[in-house]
Write a protein that binds this DNA or RNA. Sequence first.
DNA 1: ACGCATCGTCGATACGCATCGATAAATCGA
DNA 2: TCGATTTATCGATGCGTATCGACGATGCGT
Lengths: 340, 340
Amino acid sequence: MPTSKDVAQAAGVAQSTVSYVLSGKRPISEKTRKKVEAAIEELTYQPNAGARALAGRRTRVIGLVIPFIPELEMASLMEFVSVIASTARQFDHDILLVTEDEGAAGLRRVVGQQICDGLILMQVEDEDERLPVARTLNVPVLLIGIPRDPSGLVCIDADFEVAGDQCVRDLAAAGHSVISIIEWQPAVVNRHVNYVDRFMRGADGAAETLGVAVQHFPGGADVAIISESVDKALAATQGIPAFIAPDRTIQDILRRALAARGLTPGVDVSVIGSASPTLAELQPVPLSTIDLRPKEVSRRAVKIICDLLEAENHGPHESLELVPTVITHRSSTLRPPHGS
Amino acid sequence: MPTSKDVAQAAGVAQSTVSYVLSGKRPISEKTRKKVEAAIEELTYQPNAGARALAGRRTRVIGLVIPFIPELEMASLMEFVSVIASTARQFDHDILLVTEDEGAAGLRRVVGQQICDGLILMQVEDEDERLPVARTLNVPVLLIGIPRDPSGLVCIDADFEVAGDQCVRDLAAAGHSVISIIEWQPAVVNRHVNYVDRFMRGADGAAETLGVAVQHFPGGADVAIISESVDKALAATQGIPAFIAPDRTIQDILRRALAARGLTPGVDVSVIGSASPTLAELQPVPLSTIDLRPKEVSRRAVKIICDLLEAENHGPHESLELVPTVITHRSSTLRPPHGS
DNA sequence: ACGCATCGTCGATACGCATCGATAAATCGA
DNA sequence: TCGATTTATCGATGCGTATCGACGATGCGT
């Protein structure tokens, strides 16, 4: 592996000059720069990350702390990971995987060893054991999700509260007076993953304002659970029933449960679900969806933390950014109030 | 951040002694070790990764090159990632994400900058642009998957050929003389992801040996495609039909297609599918499955590359390891030849 | 033509750790 | 008891880069 000294020698300049050509932190004459760049090309030189980290006190690596909980929507988690990784590359950073099973100690480790310049935490819970640690780390930490007490932390997430509010408003405007929400999988609810509560708060708030009823039922990967929830919901509904099901993993089961009861979405039942646009369109009855903007959240998350890394002022920050969600009405809801 | 020099000072020894306490590469007296360990504890010292990499020419990081192709089974990909990451930790290594969109240049980058000591490549295709690069890198590279020409490469994967063979044998033994395979999603097949061909080779081979017929039909996330495949398969079948569907993403669609045609798995049709044991058990008719051992493949992959890293002999290696798959007969196949 | 600021480059140093050779201390045999 | 080993520790050096101060060269105004 060639070093910057080799490049310097090949170009007939000092090693420091090579460094300045690369960083642009001091003026370099056109002639010299050409020579150095030619030498770099010639030797296919690439700076050594370890040495760079040591001398520059910057690794250009961001730690991504992911939970691997089988019950979660792995496919959508992957979407986050994918977008985070490629966005990080756009900011000239790399992503290091930190698995949940190391727990809070993992955070201390990667920061203590200075493997990472900063961290992104996913799947933040209301009372998360990682938070006290995160607050004391003297590197930027970005949470995807909003814990009960976000003080002293930098958070971003989809605006689940407005999402819940909007779903209820749209269904109410379509004429429904009783709206049933099928919740996330129990594993998610029980972990007190923060977004569940926020969604429900928004939905309940809208219901109160508009004078409609919102009822909650358990979700789950199990057909029996969904069947029971649907039956209870139908029994408690006057008029045309409406369902909101923001958990992607239960879409199929719900749809079949409704079909089994002779209900056709868009005709004698309204459904707002969650699915990629492609999948939503492919349904027998194209599904109205609430898009929780995973890609946009991921992009902004990386941007925020990279900005913090630039800022260099690693004192305690605090901020909260909510990404607007998007409801798309297709055919599974009655009389969509706004087109598309 | 405390350094080893700080620790040395606190313990009243030389910095090199601290280093030897940590590495164990030279004998240290009990007394001195205690002092040093106490100082480490006291200062919560953690060695600086950059300095360690620079001096020791080892980063203890493994690059994981993942494809993010929406059509793939993201959930099962995540299973690989998860197990790889935690296994790597057991070997005291970390995982750096390298996204596919950097292409082969990404490999050159992370190796050239010496961010990684080695690489794991996932989703290897028959003619993969990364392979020529991989062969010339002077770090260990481990492929999960087997390309058309594996010479000079270290590969591991599930034994898809035996899996195909075994599925056909079991169904033939259950009395089926015509067996229909619903293939992976077109996006997978078209990319010439190597395992598709291997599976089919095994299945076709067994069919020839046993004198039964195997027919292939396209898979897909689309209900229409599966419906058409099922209809064609049924039309071409004498006696009780049998299906093999190794792609996890099409299980639900296939099951519904069969139900819609009045067929009950285990009674008037046999089905070998693919799903986690939990999910398989939860089906209306518990699904017989072919387990492609993603966890075991991941674990062994990490072990192999860590062994190569230990070996230190980074000359060209070549090896091929196949992980046996497991067929579990539940209720969706006729007369299971071996129980449970 | 002369002092002065500016530009471009060099040399030296620090970053934190691993490792090698050397040295002091302890152990052993005869 | 003295030299020969062995054991435990120290000091010095190198890893490859970033950065700071210094210095010669160049251009400026007067």
